[in-house]
Amino acid sequence: MKKIKAAHAFPSAYQLFPLGDAAIVVQFGDKISLEVHKKVRAFAALLDENTFEGFVELVPAFRTVTVYYNPWQVSQRGQHDPYQAVIDLLLPLLTKTHHQEEQPSRLVEIPVCYGGEFGPDLEFVATHNHLSPEMVISLHAATEYLVYMIGFAPGFPYLGGMNRLIAAPRHGTPRAAIPPGSVGIAGNQTGVYPLETPGGWQLIGRTPLPLFQPHHPSPCLLKAGDRLRFVPITQKEFLQRKEQVHESVD
């Protein structure tokens, strides 16, 4: 499909292209970067406040915002070309995005009980990197991470910023079930599992916080654009926090 380049004033500021006949992708860059992420957030926020008839939803990712629409509605029941109609609706917002102020960003602290039964692979990550387990914990907890996007599972954050000194390869054979709340490392990535899923990540700890509460008005703890910090807690604190969570859910 032919890609539409941005208006001449801001060459290569963004590209527009279709994803099938009911979605359009706005792409703000070629690489993963903080600068591109800020544009993604600014545009997503602007569009959230300025939705149009036939708008279905938007999905921000590392360098793109995908906008889903209902072609029947945006074309006013078939009177116009739906794709062109959506472009005409998005262009003014894209122009504004360029002047948009930076979005405020929340800092979310995720308590983690590292090692032991909750982090069976902490030793492996340490040995693999010639570090002590304590050093792995302190490096993992010292970084402020950025939630670039949410995907793969409800509330699963794609985090940027992990220290490469604690990188570790995935398990050759994935585990059949990783308990929810597990904090893991895969290559240069770290993440936290909201649901029980199979997976090959090296598990270094677990959080007592629920990342996904479907019956809550705001079901996911994390959103794209959040900053995140892991805070080490003891097993005792883990159990206390877990109990508090149960009480608040009941």
Binding site: V56, E57, V59, P60, Y68, I150, P154, F156, P219
Partner: peptide
């Protein structure tokens, strides 16, 4: 279930 894909749902 629309409107929650941005949250991975």
């Amino acid at each position: 279930r629309f409107g929650h894909q941005k949250e991975g749902i």
